[in-house]
Design a protein around this nucleic acid. Structure first.
Length: 650
DNA sequence: GTTTCGGTTCTTTTT
DNA sequence: GAACCGAAAC
């Protein structure tokens, strides 16, 4: 606890940032320069200096980052760190709203809607307004449209015009859906992810006393990955830090890759203007990568407009250069990658120190096939997350209804599990119940039974028998017991009839039941669950996906951010694939793709291999030819070593 | 009128 | 692998 000594473990750049005086601070931290380390030490240093930990707020983008930093800070200064408010923007907003939602027209036990729920709610709104026509935008389109408008804090009409530049669109209808959607969420006492942030801001606007209490409380506000904040998040930060103005933000504009969800790295660039007197620190000493890798990274990013100039300085020494592999097609690429994996393993590099990165999930298809064929173990960060899988959501729907009897999406989901019940029937019954269903009440259960079509009645009784011997007033305290009974009475049979991989899914549900044992109330579990991203392998004792393994890792570049490996292989560096076709028309979007390339290259410590296949099979048995990616062309000759493999393997 | 089934298309992503 | 669409089945 005593004698925390930054000088002993940090370099001069980092020490300066950690010891920065009070007031606004901007730390520009290039890749691999110890950004997390610096932030962690800053927290520890504040605590060490005697700042009350509960007066410190640490905002991050992912749960992983929050946990990592809190753990590390704890090892530096011990348990008091536990008092720090640390978490994602959404977590912190949720925590605030659980205390104040009543003030803005919600109950404090509101439900959090995930993407699926939001979609089905939107579909319902579209149907009810009679807009479900051929040329009316689909729920999916509207969801991202609304979300972008809200996160960018731009008027919906602007976003509509941006999205439908050439296509005629019923803008008025879109507005009506938006209004219906907003009303609906309030009626059913539910918020989507965007609401968590926006309603918190609204709370602050309408109830200055609530805002003042948090402003008073947070003596220091620290923000990680500031380049990825969207305008709403930036406003939230500004509001919370307004009283004490001790705002410490860290980021790297080169690594801003989330503009498509409303992030604007100009928030980062303009920070010193918005906060006059900002102390600026730069971290440029890179400990991670060999110099050859950093030269490529520096060269490729240099051409982007609008950025803080900075250069990665290597500490490590070596003359080894990254490899550019010129390949014929995806199949040859797959074989080449496997050769490189074998070679690395022969060189003594463990499998889990090797990562294959790509722009889009489907870019790894051939490779997945080939790895499977040869029995090489790999794990893959896919789009589907534990809590987004259908069977997990089915079980959670039951818990949601217990917590919030007005939870329409949960009710519809549950009823749709019954035979001969689809969207229409479920909605009709929901309306006949007065848009509320209290699981506890036998009358309500009977009312559903009466309204169901014949074949569904028996299954309904079985499903609801999960509650039979449970004390109605204590339901909220036994989530594990409820799900256990639901699965044994009803879901096991349902799963076996429905899913070809029923066994695996039932195992997942067992894990979920174990996991629920940790929670003493449904509401605690549901907030945690809704805000949890993919359950990470390391999360000790948590729910884990079956395939978390020891093999090489296949991942999108987006998901690789913040991580590092000894060997990194990047696939499909071809014009039209990476950068992807849909970004080619816009300067800004190509600049973002280039930052993505920068992120990919700077993940590598020792060996970087850039693959450039020339053609790809199209759907109709044809061949499409691709020019090498502009990101490769931009690298000065001599910085990479060209490899034209003649493959002897079959 | 609804539900279910089979074929087709596409597949940055976090909360 | 899942979301969507159109057609068949209930």
């Amino acid at each position: 606890m005593n004698g925390l000594d930054p000088e002993s473990s940090l370099n001069a750049e980092q020490v300066a940032a950690v010891r920065a005086p009070d007031g606004p601070v901007l730390v520009i931290a290039a890749a691999g320069t110890g950004k997390t380390r610096t932030l962690t030490w800053r927290v520890a240093w504040l605590v060490e200096r005697g700042i009350d930990p509960s007066g410190i707020l640490l905002l991050t983008f992912t749960n992983r980052a929050a946990r990592e930093m809190m753990d590390r800070a704890r090892t530096l200064v011990g348990d008091p760190v536990g008092g720090v408010w640390g978490g994602t923007f959404h977590h912190v907003a949720n925590r605030i709203l659980r205390r104040h939602a009543r003030a803005i027209g919600f109950d404090n036990d509101f439900t959090i809607l995930d993407e699926d729920d939001t979609l089905s709610l939107l579909r319902a709104c579209i149907s009810e307004l009679g807009l479900r026509e051929k040329h009316f935008p689909k729920a999916d389109v509207l969801r991202s449209l609304f979300s972008l408008a809200r996160n960018r804090a731009t008027p919906l009409s602007d976003e509509i015009h941006r999205r439908f530049r050439e296509t005629p669109v019923d803008a008025e209808g879109v507005f009506r859906v938006f209004t219906a959607f907003t009303d609906r969420k309030r009626q059913i006492n539910a918020m989507d992810f965007d609401d968590l942030l926006i309603q918190t801001l609204r709370l602050f606007d309408e109830h200055p006393a609530a805002l003042a209490s948090y402003q008073e409380r947070f003596l220091h506000v620290l923000v990680d990955e500031y380049q990825d904040t969207n305008p709403i998040q930036a406003r939230l930060v500004d509001a919370l830090a307004a009283r004490h103005r001790n705002l410490f933000v860290v980021g790297d504009d080169f690594q801003s890759i989330y503009s498509w969800r409303g992030a604007d790295f100009r928030n980062f660039l303009s920070f010193p203007d918005r906060y006059p007197g900002t102390a600026v620190f730069k971290l440029e000493t890179n400990y991670r990568s060999l110099p050859g890798i950093l030269q490529v990274a520096n060269a490729c990013i240099a051409g982007n407009p609008e950025q803080f100039q900075k250069i990665l300085r290597a500490i490590r020494q070596s003359t080894e250069r990254p490899i550019r592999a010129e390949l014929r097609d995806g199949d040859q690429q797959a074989k080449y990658v496997i050769e490189q994996i074998s070679r690395s393993i022969r060189d003594g590099i463990p499998k889990k120190e090797i990562a294959i990165l790509y722009r889009s999930h489907y870019h790894a298809m051939e490779l997945q096939l080939e790895l499977t064929r040869r029995g090489i173990p790999f794990s893959i960060t896919s789009g589907i997350r534990f809590f987004e899988q259908a069977h997990i959501k089915d079980a959670c729907a039951l818990l949601r209804l217990v917590q919030n009897p007005g939870d329409e999406p949960a009710f519809l989901r549950l009823l749709s599990l019954l035979p001969r019940v689809g969207e229409k029937t479920a909605l009709r019954i929901w309306a006949s119940l007065g848009r509320r269903f209290a699981v506890r009440l036998p009358e309500a259960r009977n009312a559903v039974d009466r309204a169901l079509p014949g074949p569904a009645k028996a299954d309904w009784k079985t499903m609801i028998s999960a509650f039979d011997e449970l004390e109605p007033n204590r339901l909220d305290q036994q989530p594990g017991e409820i799900v256990y009974r639901f699965v044994s009475a009803f879901y096991t049979a349902y799963a076996e009839e429905t899913f070809e991989n029923a066994e695996r899914r039932l195992e997942d549900l067992e894990e979920l039941i174990n996991f629920l044992g940790r929670f003493s109330s449904i509401s605690d579990f549901l907030s945690d669950m809704a805000l949890m991203s993919h359950v990470e392998e390391e999360s000790s004792g948590g729910v884990r996906k079956a395939d978390s393994g020891e093999g090489v890792l296949l991942s999108t570049i987006h998901q690789s951010k913040g991580l590092e490996w000894s060997v990194v292989i990047v696939l499909w560096l071809a014009e039209g694939l990476f950068p992807s076709q849909r970004t080619l028309e816009s300067q800004d979007e190509v600049a973002e793709e280039r930052r993505l390339f920068y992120v990919a290259t700077t993940r590598a410590r020792d060996r970087l291999i850039l693959c450039a296949p020339r053609c790809r099979r199209t759907r109709d048995q044809g061949m499409a030819f691709y020019a090498p990616s502009r990101f490769l062309q931009e690298i000065p000759t001599g910085l990479v070593q060209i490899d034209r493999p003649v493959l002897t393997m079959n």
